[in-house]
Each structure stands twice: as structure tokens, then as C-alpha cells.
Design a protein around this nucleic acid. Sequence first.
RNA 1: GGCCCGUUCGUCUAGUUGGCCUAGGACGCCGCCCUCUCAAGGCGGAAAUCAGCGGUUCGAAUCCGCUACGGGCUACCA
Length: 476
Amino acid sequence: MSESPLPVRVRYAPSPTGALHLGGARTALFNFLFARQRRGQFLLRIEDTDRARLKPGSQEQIQEALGWLGLNWDEQPVVQSQRKEIYRGAADELIGRGAAYRCFCTPERLELMRAEQRARRQPERYDRRCATIPPEESARRAAAGEPFVVRQRMPAEGTTSLHDLVMGTVVFRNETLDDHVLLKSDGYPTYHLAFAVDDHDSRISHVIRGDGWLPSAPKHLLLIEAFQWPVPAFAHLPLVLGPDRKPLAKRHGAKDVLEYREAGYLPEAIVNWIAFLGWSPGTEDEILSMPDLIARFSIDKVQPSPAIANLERLDWLNGQYIRRLSPDELARRIASTMGEVPVERVRPVVPLVQERLRTLAEAPDMLRFFFTRPDGYRADQLLPKGKDVEATAAAIDACETALQGLTEWAHEPVETCLRELAHRIGWASRDLFMALRVAVTGRTVTPPLIESMVVLGKPEVLARLQRAKAALKPLN
RNA sequence: GGCCCGUUCGUCUAGUUGGCCUAGGACGCCGCCCUCUCAAGGCGGAAAUCAGCGGUUCGAAUCCGCUACGGGCUACCA
């Protein structure tokens, strides 16, 4: 595990086949943290060599999600489809060196071959029929227009070992390696070729990627060696799983990163949350900001086992981050989710909900009563236990009169006034408060009543009390 | 089937040079306190014989082996 003397350069290399999901975001994050900590570069590469699976708009979506999380990349993203000729040249070079060869086998023959191997219960691997075609013949057939792919020539014996920063040393027997395809017949490279060429061209020092690549890592190592290029360090990250221990998917309610934004999560919370999926600082700290993470991240503290995403923990973390926001900032973020309501109207009300929110998405519902009067009351909510309609109407009426007489509309006088009133009419203050709460807000669960009333203002509160009284009348 | 990786409370994890671990923290859960509801906050609790078995050792969650289970890869996908 020798430290690379080269400057640190890492990359996140998604294929544009959909949105950025959590696992990808975490891979990107770990790359980003590592780069920033070592004052290196974090690059973005678009692996779009699979023309069939390409989804329009995907690249933009991925970039927006990365930006939202604050994972800003350096330099211009490398787009593989724009580098077709480079890969072709690289494949030719490999053929020239004897490290690769053209294969003219048809898909039909390959399928037949595999079927036979399956029948004989042998490993399904290319049988290397084309490996022994003389170079001149190979070149002639290619020149004649016969379709072909280029395959990597694997050593028949020996072992290839990888010193992975997360998994430790992993040894593979070369005889188990397949002569996989490097260049497809459509002229596009497969992942393996493009990976080696691009990482070399980008001078990538550390390959930090999903552990799905671990099994093909020896091929990659051999490829890099065939080119006689410097070998980067490797770190394979375990998967993020859903609650059923299956790879994270839609059905778990674990959504694409951008959908978390819709659901009212803060990017800071998402980052903190996924950072702790498979990694921990080794201390008892739980809340770490991006700068903290950059300072404390360490690849060898990454867990080699897969992590199961804990959505409840995200909710808690999100609440923590919401409480740490300044009221102004929170108001801005809430207003941005509420379209029609201007920030100035949200701001005064924010302190009342700040410690009650788990997600921004809960805010509109929680705040609604500040902006619109309750439309319709439910008797079962308005009437405290054991109090009838008449008594409740009378109590509300008494409140109205008492509040009317207040000269100062502030927390202290209002509370004193109401408690004295409760005492005077022989009501438990909790009952009075609940009746008032429903009268003023239309609901039984709200931010603190007195504060809410103060913010609403005296005329509005009195108006709502009258409406509540009116609503009680027909019930009598 | 073949190859590779993994396995500490329900979940994320601490633990990594074997003894200070009668295994610590966090989320969630339960109870109490606070209290005008709900939260937040405070306090306390239940919760892992460290996957199992066999070694090495005075001593193992920590080292070795085997087994079981889970996962990944096994495409002209990434």
C-alpha cells in the first residue's frame, strides 16, 4: 500500500443510463473527499460507450445532482463517445504488441459455445479459437471488411494480485481469466479498454470505484501492464444495499438523489448520511460537515462489507441540519419549496417550526394556518374532553373579551391573561389552550399556541375566535 | 457451476500492533422528566455469547483453517 508520489487525481465515471442514485453519489463523494483532502483533482468522466443503454438527459441529471450535493468536479468532463479513435488506436497498439487479437467469431457461434460449456458444466469462457490466427491473416480479413472484435490475450498461468486499499490483497489465478472483449464490432471500446486508456490519459492516481469491478480488476491490471503504463492505486467500495439486503433500488423508497431534494432533504444531510454508509471517522462524532469530512476522511477506514441504507437515520440527520440553519437561511429554503409564498412572510414564522421539522417538505403543511384561516372546525377537536358545546363557546367568548382588552400583544401578557381566565372559569389551562389551539389554527398539532397567536396578530386571532364560535352555534 | 468479496445490537458502526471489551456510540424502539398539543432537549432502559466450528495462545471480536449464510462478477453492459 505504498503512497503514490504522483499528485492525487481521481474521478467519478458514471454511465449516462439514468439518474444519479445513492450508491453512485457515495462513490462520487468518497472520490471527492479524497481529492480535496490531498489537494488533488476530482474529475468527471461520462462512460457512454454503450450506445444501446444511453438515456438522453441523463448526463445533465447526474451533473445537476452532483452539483446539488456540492461535489464539484475539476476540469472538463471526459466524454468517451468523443474519443472513439483514441481507443481504436490503443487497441491496434495492443494487437501490435501481441497483448490482444482480433476475434471474428459471430455472436451465434459464441452463444453455441457457451451453451456447450454450460451443458458440460464448465466455466463459460471464450475458447480462444481466434487467438492463434496468424497476424497477416487477421489483418487481411479485417481489411477485407470482415466484422471483428478485439480481445485481450490473458496469460495462461500464474497469478495476478491486486493490493486494494479497502479489500486488502486479492489474488487471482490467471487461468480463470477470460479473453474479454476490448473493442466492440461497432468500433466502441468496452469499459475495460476505455477505463485503462482514459485513466492513463487523465493521469488518474487512485481508482476509487464500486466493488462490482473487483472481479475484473486483474484484467485491468494486466491491460495497464501491457501498455506499460504506471499502475494507479485501487480502492473498491462495497455496495449500498436496501433493507432486504438487495442492492438499493426504487422499491426500497430509496430514490435518486434529485428525488431526495424533492422530498425536502438538505444536501448537507444527504452528504453526511452517505458518508457514514460504510465509513466512520472512528470517533463518536455523528454530525460532520463537508469540510469536516474532507479533513477526516480516510480510505482505509472504509468498511469492506456492504452497508444497508438506514432511511430513519437520514430523517434524524436532516432534522439536525435543519436546526443548525440560521432562521434566515431556513426561511429561504422553505420559501423555495412553497412557490407562491414570499420569503418575508415565511421568515417571522420560521422560529416556531425550526425544531419541529424533519424535512423541508413538512413545512408548508405545518405553516398553512398562518397564511389561511381554518375552513371548518371539527366539534370533536374543538371540544375538550368533558366540555359541551355551550361551555366551550362560552370559554372562547370569554377569551375573546379578555384578549380584546389587552393593550400589549406579546407573549407575556397573552399567556398571563389566558391562564388567569382559565383559573377564573375553572378550566384546566391545557383544556383551554387546546380549545383555543383548534379555534385559532384548525388543528390539534401545531407550533406553540401563544407564539403563534402573537405572530398572527390580535385582529386575526379575534376574527378566528369569532369564526370558531359561529361554527359551534349550529351544533347547539 | 466457476471466480472474488464479505459476516460485531433490527440498522450504521467503535474495536484494528491479541489482555483496559462484564463489547462503546448513533438511529430506531420503550419509560421518565420538561410541557398549552406536537416536536426538540435531558435522563434511563431493552437490544450483539462479536455467523458457526476447530485451532494457536496464559489470554481472541481481534491471528490461522474449515463450514454456513449473504453479496458481486461470470455480455460485442457499465
